[in-house]
Design a protein around this nucleic acid. Structure first.
Lengths: 226, 226
DNA sequence: ATATTTTAGTGAGTATACTCATGGATTTCC
DNA sequence: GGAAATCCATGAGTATACTCACTAAAATAT
């Protein structure tokens, strides 16, 4: 049970001891270990691919026991999911924190969103191709549609929803506008697939595709405008 | 060993040899075993879900040794993939063999295609939800985008391509029309996701969604028409 | 400070997907 | 009909994701 905090009538033992930090050693250590796991795993995923990277190898590289990995992540795929959370959060922040986009047209915001995601993923292309996309398999718990990743998808879809409502103030919750954010997630996955296969310099084909398809899509949502 | 017994009788060896099935016992047996594996696996997937179904259980139910399963399917997921091959082939046939659709509008053909797929999957909804969709994970070899499932996707996309060219005789290989079949695969996956979450009677919401979105999509491909 | 409670790392253990050497059954060749 | 070649089911073995009982360290209470 939770211990009741009782007024320490005693003199405060400010005795933090010379070597003790104000932040508990434990909490501090946890953060560090989590980071070590993610860093080690990512490095291994990049070089050996997802399947060929063993949890034992991750633990070894992180300097911890194998079992410890599972004190932090429920499954090996959750480690990868953690990486994609950063990807999504980073892209959302990139759009939110860009003052120039405040009053930019919707398609520009969406372009920036997806573009940020792709930029983030670029250094890990091999890992993505080998593990994440190959990952869209039928029995995967981390999958793009999986329950495990649902929360991440919700965060993403919720943000897209915000952007839409912000740009289409007079939208009347039409079926289309309601479906649009969900659809956008699928659209993003398709784009990722395209991007992975895009061998044009600087992935310019993907960027062109993004530009065109977003204009088209947004114009469908704003039949009056233009 | 299989339970099949040899006829011990030597009474009419000549006759028996002469009338031995034209198809070797081996080939015949192989076909039967493959079928037994698929049937057993599917039944187990339905009741216990994909992950909780062990290959040992599949082998046991099929009456074979565990190793034998892997003489027929490279991975457990390949067994599921086999099931989806049937799903796709069946749907393609349903559209091809329906004379009424010969000169029907494109959206009707596409509607029938997807509808056939969903009808096929209906009895296995639990399995799909638990294993196949959950399957779109980041490390899966059978995945919707996976290399393993590529051929199946090609077959599907190729057929959609046929339908498009058939209905848009004067199409000029625009970027949009070239991408359309690929996009349709993604669209199908999204629809499947929608279908799985659709609790309306008879999945009518999904059907309505299909109807609307296909009309919309097709009209984008035929800007002149209408 | 000492005692008690809570937290979290450990690594041997478990479950299971998949491999492989073997030999018996089937087919082929004569 | 028999010998040689081929096929393929077998199941013990391997690799590895994940579990769990234990314990030591840290936090909290006395």
């Amino acid at each position: 049970m939770t211990a009741k905090k009782r007024a320490p009538s005693k003199a405060k033992p400010r005795r933090r001891v010379a070597t003790t930090r104000p932040v508990g050693r434990r909490a501090q250590n946890k953060q560090a270990i989590r980071q070590r796991i993610v860093t080690a795993a990512l490095k291994l995923f990049q070089t050996k691919g997802f399947d060929s990277t063993t949890t034992k190898a991750i633990a070894r590289k992180a300097g911890i026991a194998e079992g410890t990995v599972f004190n932090y992540f429920r499954t090996k795929e959750d480690i990868a999911l953690y990486f994609f959370e950063q990807e999504v959060d980073q892209a959302i922040a990139a759009v939110r924190d860009n003052p120039r986009l405040r009053k930019a047209p919707l398609e520009e915001k969406l372009f920036t969103l997806v573009h940020s995601q792709l930029e983030f993923l670029a250094p890990y292309e091999r890992f993505i191709g080998a593990a994440f996309i190959q990952a869209l398999k039928p029995a995967s718990p981390l999958g793009a549609f999986s329950h495990r990743a649902q929360e991440l998808r919700h965060r993403y879809v919720g943000f897209v929803q915000e952007l839409l409502e912000e740009s289409l103030p007079n939208h009347r919750h039409t079926p289309v506008s309601w479906l649009a954010p969900q659809t956008f997630w699928i659209y993003y996955l398709g784009t990722l697939l395209y991007w992975l296969h895009d061998t044009s310099p600087g992935k310019q084909n993907t960027l062109a595709f993004l530009d065109r398809s977003l204009s088209l899509g947004v114009s469908m949502l704003q039949p009056g405008k233009r």
